[in-house]
């Protein structure tokens, strides 16, 4: 009882219990690993038999190794290409949906509509990607459809191409764009739109001058939620791509789990840190460019 009484009385002990323990957990198992991986990528851990010892000497060998990797610049360029197209694609496809559900649809049906959007995303992501393989296959739905309509005589080979990767990425990341957009559009004051119309604005002008600027926080949140993970995607290029669709994520994955060893891990950590740096820089530039604050959730 003594310890309990002590806790009861002391505000500091209580604060440690409430804030300190969870925070400590995150520091030990989330933030310190980042630091360790950073030091590791700088060659500051040496393996001696089965143990690692700390060497206070910085070397950029692993980073140099990464940039000597065959075709690494092409890989980084391709990762950006996929991530940018995925972000644009999800935005273009999602905006009308979010607009319809958030502005046009009767309030009573909105929850149900969101539920209908959400449900497929409850099903394991890997299975959904695997399902897309049936659709994009040479004898799959898309090709059958195109042939019936007479667009193509020979089936198009989607699997293994950039196009397949981008289609599946857009499909998989849609939800992260729809929900933030819906979040802002649903709160949009319809009277503002009516006011613009009363004052003589055409629907197009109302959209460009009122609706679109007011949805910027949602656009920002949505595009960061899509872009950040899309840049490091490795599952989709592995499952529907081929030898020519390797990305930054693919290289990190194969360095860590296929090449392994001190070198694989060193170069892999270097790649991961470059990935994080690119995210921070790209998000910063993007937010300066679009302006406004990100509102998550």
């Amino acid at each position: 009882m003594n310890v309990l009484d002590l806790v009861r009385r002391s505000r500091k002990l209580k604060l440690f219990l409430f804030i300190g323990i969870p925070l400590l957990y995150l520091f030990i198992f989330f933030f310190i690993p980042f630091l360790i991986a950073l030091l590791y990528s700088l060659g500051m851990f040496k393996q001696v038999v089965y143990q690692y010892i700390f060497v206070p000497r910085v070397s950029l060998d692993y980073y140099a190794g990464l940039f000597k990797y065959p075709g690494i610049l092409k890989l980084i360029q391709r990762s950006f290409y996929y991530a940018v197209l995925t972000t644009l694609g999800t935005f273009i496809l999602s905006y009308p949906i979010a607009y319809y559900i958030g502005v046009k649809l009767d309030r009573r049906y909105r929850d149900t509509a969101v539920l209908i959007i959400f449900t497929p995303f409850w099903i394991n992501f890997l299975l959904r990607v695997y399902g897309m393989r049936f659709i994009l296959h040479e004898a799959g739905l898309v090709n059958t459809f195109l042939r019936l309509l007479g667009f193509v005589s020979e089936p198009i080979k989607f699997l293994g191409t950039d196009l397949a990767v981008i289609i599946v990425m857009i499909y998989s990341y849609m939800i992260f764009m729809v929900l933030p957009l819906y979040g802002v559009l649903e709160k949009l004051d319809v009277e503002l739109l009516e006011a613009a119309a009363t004052l003589g604005a055409t629907p197009l002008k109302t959209f460009l001058r009122v609706t679109l600027p007011l949805s910027i926080p949602g656009i920002l949140a949505g595009s960061l939620l899509v872009f950040i993970p899309a840049l490091g995607e490795f599952v989709i290029p592995e499952l529907v791509g081929g030898p020519n669709t390797a990305t930054l994520g693919t290289i990190i994955y194969s360095l860590f789990l296929r090449v392994r060893g001190v070198t694989g891990w060193g170069i892999g950590s270097a790649a991961a840190l470059i990935y994080i740096t690119m995210i921070v820089v790209a998000s910063y530039i993007y937010m300066r460019f679009v302006g406004g604050e990100v509102v998550l959730g």
Partner: peptide, 19 residues
């Protein structure tokens, strides 16, 4: 507390493995 939601999972995973 929000950082783990934003950081891409592959980075979380490999830093934890190295650690």
């Amino acid at each position: 507390m929000l950082v783990p939601i934003i950081i891409p999972e592959i980075v979380e995973a490999l830093t934890l493995l190295v650690f």
